[in-house]
Amino acid sequence: MKGGLARRLGLGGRGAVIAVPLFWLLVFFLVPFLVVAKISLSEALIAQPPFAPLAEWDGLRLMLLLNFENFAYLWQDPLYLRAYGFSILIAFIAAFASLLIGYPMAYAIARSPEPRRTILLMLVILPFWTSFLLRVYAWQGFLRSTGTVNGFLIWTGIIDAPIQMLQTNFAVLLGIVYMYLPFMILPLYANIVKLDESLLEASADLGARASVTFLRVTLPLTLPGIVAGFMLVFIPAIGEFVIPELLGGPDTLMIGRVLWNEFFANRDWPVAAAVAIAMLVAVVVPIMFMRTLGERLEAGR
């Protein structure tokens, strides 16, 4: 019966309704990637715009000027490979750390009585509605050597001199976990709140210890939430720019920051485009993985 509404719209109306969002996303989401791919294969020029055309028409022949030098350059300069590897590593650690913090939080929220549950859930969402940039800035003030944390530690006598916390890789990791924690908690919460408590009781009645029940009942049942939360943190964290720029040191090279610098500082658009294509590979593979895993979990149900 779901198709009933559509059928009555008639083909013309139906087609037009589909076409509007489809056309917008094709032009402004899909085609841009083709343009990036094209420009990543062209030569950098000092001109406006600063890249050479890919095809030339000299009156007689059409010449295709493909140029793989930008990719060769990325491969040869260890800076890019390091930034690439480091971004994936730090995104992975951050996603794992958010899982360790987010899972107990989601569990505690899902298991609390009703008025408190809604309030706690709102407290998780609230920072998400305030500015991302301003929250990164808040961490800057929090971590700097004259900042709140160092001030507190010196005041309590735990340390004598401030510790360098800002401009370290640790600060970047902390920042990513902080910023993306709600993205971990929300899918986990949605999953845990649906968990049938009688299954846990049955497991306990049959003599399983709490840890066994958790590993063999709770964990497998909440796996979809874990996968969703992990990917929602991992994928955007790979390309993060603001956090490494404001919290990291000059040697914290993440791929998003490299792309930004190639584009804005070096004005090398073709290399920036090549970096984007390389980053896209790192992002598309986990997206595909998430989709197939999600489908398999659905099918196994």
Partner: peptide, 22 residues
């Protein structure tokens, strides 16, 4: 195409749209 922009790193979206506009 509706779900991909949710996780797409912003630097990629920004760069690709700029190159499209140019």
């Amino acid at each position: 195409m509706v779900t991909a922009p949710l996780v797409m790193p912003e630097v990629i979206t920004g760069l690709s749209l700029l190159l499209l506009f140019v």
